[in-house]
């Protein structure tokens, strides 16, 4: 796995580059932009892959200039903030978006590395099952969340967002790690089943509402907690050190000293199982 800090590498000769032909506010759905779909294909074959421009079925070649062949490394350039589902369900390779990304980017992915130089839309990494997503900017609502009607959100993997995120980050997440360096919106970790949400900036109001298990870590200012959480004690969580070591290895500029405890531990939500925890850095 590559270094998160230098993941947004300049375009290399071994990647397929997609360059948006023109900017448009019309939504595009392009889940075919995935290392799994591109691997082994020529430029012509990639250009024939389908996409939706609004409700019209088009090809990637209609929307993008394509350069490069036979690889599972993809670079996307130009304005793709209205392009949905880039890297949707990807299982391998690397995908770098050099700019802002649209909604559902990296949703359901189970492997590989996805890097976004700018901001990401809603549903970033929704229901992902593995791999790494690294966002240099911020992200919208429901990061790593579960789609409506689905029982479980993110199930494995790592999402790092350097900016702020919107509401309900980690909605119904089951496993995995979400790291937000900026602020989180309302209801972070709502209905969490398990997993870890690490918030280095301000943790939004009412964190962990309805959570059964799982961990929300608040390193910023003390969050507004729901009454269904009880104070449990003050301690130095060793497991958090393991996470930090892991993130340092991944290239995130953190230090053990920066995140050294102690932490106040609140357990809840007692309207649910009550086995979740919110750790608030002292």
């Amino acid at each position: 796995m590559g270094c998160l800090s230098c993941a947004a590498l300049a375009r290399t000769s071994t990647e397929v580059t997609l360059r948006r032909r023109e900017s448009s506010s019309i939504p595009i759905e392009a889940e075919t932009i995935s290392p799994d779909r591109f691997r082994g294909l020529s430029e012509t074959q990639i250009a024939r892959l389908p996409a939706y421009y609004g409700r019209r079925l088009v090809t990637l070649g209609d929307l993008f200039e394509i350069e490069g062949v036979h690889t599972d490394q993809i670079g996307v350039e130009g304005d793709v903030s209205h392009v949905k589902k880039i890297g949707y369900g990807m299982t391998r390779g690397s995908l770098t978006i050099r700019g802002d990304a649209g909604p559902h980017t990296g949703a359901l992915m189970s492997g590989g590395e996805l890097t976004i130089d700018g901001d990401a839309g809603d549903w970033l990494g929704a229901q992902m099952k593995g791999g790494v997503i690294n966002v240099m900017g911020g992200a919208g609502n429901f990061v790593g969340g579960a789609y409506p009607g689905e029982a479980r959100g993110m199930n494995r993997g790592l999402i790092v967002v350097r900016g702020n995120v919107g509401q309900e980050a980690g909605l119904r997440m089951r496993r995995g790690l979400i790291v937000v360096l900026g602020a989180t919106g309302d209801f972070p970790g709502a209905h969490m089943i398990a997993g870890t949400l690490l918030a280095l900036g301000r943790l939004g109001p009412r964190p962990g509402a309805g959570m059964k298990r799982g961990t929300i870590v608040a390193l910023g200012e003390a969050p507004e907690l729901l009454p269904a959480f009880r104070y449990s004690g003050t301690f130095e969580p060793v497991f958090l050190r393991f996470y930090i070591q892991h993130l340092i290895k991944e290239g995130l500029m953190l230090s053990q000293r920066q995140l050294a405890g102690p932490y106040l531990r609140y357990v809840g939500d007692f309207n649910e199982l009550g086995k979740g925890e919110i750790l608030v850095h002292v």
């Binding site: 790592l158 995995g176 790690l177 870890t196 130095e236 969580p237 060793v238 497991f239 393991f242 892991h246």
Partner: peptide
């Protein structure tokens, strides 16, 4: 806790975990 293929167990003990 499950991180990148490694599962840890946090067991409550009298000095913490």
């Amino acid at each position: 806790k499950y991180v990148e293929g490694r599962r840890l167990w946090r067991i409550p003990v009298m000095d913490g975990e």
